[in-house]
Structures are given as structure tokens and as C-alpha cells.
Design a protein around this nucleic acid. Structure first.
Lengths: 151, 151
DNA sequence: ATGAATGCAAATAGTTTGCACCTAA
DNA sequence: TTAGGTGCAAACTATTTGCATTCAT
């Protein structure tokens, strides 16, 4: 089962369960979304419009919300004013490390940090619900940079 | 030296260094800002207008940016669509724990998490520059909640 | 047939900017 | 005097919404 198939299965299940309809657009948007990482609505819209030029921005916004409700996408905000979406795979969790120089986005998972968080929450009498953790760094556009020697 | 005095000193220094001007509005906004925590522009504007009704929103936006440049304020975004600002005190750092039920914002500092982050960054060849870490939890509006038994 | 989804355009919300007037230095 | 600041309104950006039309069921 490819990522597309399992995401689609989950989406169709959600659509059926909610008495919604299966549409061409929803599948087309999912197809493009699957092979993208941390896409903005604008990027996704442009890509979708290459196959289906009539697609409207509102549909992409609405469909991404649907993906989030169906549990196949996460919304992210990296502080540049526009939301980004990424595929939500089963029981996988990660946070992000963003390079301020070359804008590369890495994903990381640090069990030690994860467990600290529950402690912090309970210390204040709260039950941990979710979190958001982004680390910003610099690659100085040197060899270590995945885009080196990009402009 | 009160927090207001040291913030004001730093602001005036920045203003002088940049050849800017000292204005009534900047001091008035600082006065209100000092005694607020995680304020939105709207909240700050309303409070400032109680003392100086003619103050415009643009001035508050511009002044908060100035505060950030002067190093006396941090901009925060807790995902509700509007920026919040808080006083930046010397060599103090903290992250946030937000209650999804009662909206209380706690501050926390966890040295273990801090040091993990540099490791994560270097693991990917980056130098740590900054980070953003928010933990979201629930108080279930019970006794532990600082606003209990609020509505 | 009929109700939900789409696409467009208009509406919002938060923030920024242009510009005439004001004010600190 | 004069550059920088302010206040207002208009512009902008990302996103949402109203509505007539289209499409899935």
C-alpha cells in the first residue's frame, strides 16, 4: 500500500462517514499533495492547476482543511505568514529544524525532549495535549548545507 | 532601576544611536507595554488610547517593531492569527505553555530541552540560532486551573 | 432530483504603507 | 528649519465566505 493509497483510503473513509461527496478535485489535490513536503497553499494550487487549470484557490483551502479533519495532513506555521501543510503518517511525530540561510526544513524527533514536555505540563497542573517546536539555525551556506554551493 | 527604567534606557539608547526622535507616543506606549504580558496590538492600542485617545493603530504597530529592534520586546505567535508582544528582559529566556481550556499562558524554562536543541541542530550541520517551543495542554477547568472556577 | 462541492468574487482580519500634517531637535 | 514621526485612510496578504452553477449520488 503506497502512501497515496493509505491516505486516500483514510480520506474516502472520512468522506463516507461524514456523508460528503467524492470529487475529482479532492483526488487531484491529494495526488499533488502526497508528493510534496511542507507546501503552501499557493504552491499546491499552482501545481494542481497544471493538471486542472480551472481549480480555484478556495477549493484548495477547503480541501486542505478537509485533509486535516480526515487526519491525513498537519498544518504548520513557520512564521513567514503563510500556512504550510504536510502529510500526516500514522503514529509518526516529528518537529522541525529550519535553516535561516538556505530555508531547508529538516524533521527531527527527540525522545528526551518529548518526555520533558509532559513533565513541564504536569508541573503546572495541565495535561499535555500538543506542542509545537521549531529550531532555527544557520548552515552559513557551507559544505554542510544540503544546498551548498547554492547562490 | 525598575523594569520600566531599564527598558526605557535601552530604547532611548537605540533611538539616539539610530538618529531617531524621542516622542511622547513612544514613551506612552512603553508605559502601557511594561505592565502587560503577551499583549496583542489591539489590547495595547485600546489601553494606550485610554490615556491618549488620538493614538493611531499604525503608530502602535510601528512602535512595537521599534521595541523589537531595540531589544526590549519579543514577538510571539500562538497560532490564533494575531501577534503578541512581551517584554524582553536581559539574558532571560523562556518558552510557553498554553492552556487550551482557559487560555492561561505560563512561561517555562527547561535546561535539558535547551541543550538538546543545540545537539539536534549540529547533528544536521547547523548552528543553533533561535527556537520556538510551545506546549499546549488542558486544565479541564478544575482546581489546578489558575482561573478555576471560572466560567 | 437534490444537496453538497466548486469557482468566482467579495468580504475579513491583521498588518503595512502613502501621504499630508505635526513635532522634536 | 527640517528630517523623522504620527494619524488617517487606502493597500496588501492570507484566508474565508456568499452565492449561482455544477456535479455526485
Amino acid at each position: 500500500m503506497t502512501p497515496f493509497d493509505s491516505a486516500r483510503a483514510r480520506l474516502e473513509g472520512h468522506i463516507d462517514r461524514q456523508g460528503m461527496k467524492h470529487t475529482r478535485q479532492r483526488v487531484q489535490i491529494l495526488e499533488v499533495f502526497i508528493s510534496a513536503r511542507h507546501v503552501t497553499v499557493e504552491e499546491l494550487l499552482r501545481a494542481v492547476q497544471e493538471a486542472a487549470p480551472a481549480t480555484g484557490a478556495a477549493t484548495v483551502y477547503r480541501t486542505l482543511k478537509l485533509f486535516v479533519e480526515a487526519g491525513i495532513a498537519h498544518e504548520r506555521n513557520f512564521g513567514d505568514g503563510q500556512a504550510r501543510y504536510e502529510l500526516a503518517m500514522d503514529d509518526e511525530h516529528h518537529d522541525h529544524l529550519i535553516c535561516l540561510d538556505c530555508k531547508v526544513i529538516f524533521e527531527f524527533e527527540e525522545q528526551e525532549i518529548e518526555s520533558c514536555q509532559a513533565v513541564v505540563a504536569s508541573r503546572h497542573g495541565l495535561t499535555l495535549r500538543s506542542h509545537r517546536h521549531e529550531i532555527y539555525g544557520s548552515c552559513d551556506l557551507r559544505e554542510a548545507c544540503p544546498r551548498w554551493p547554492a547562490s
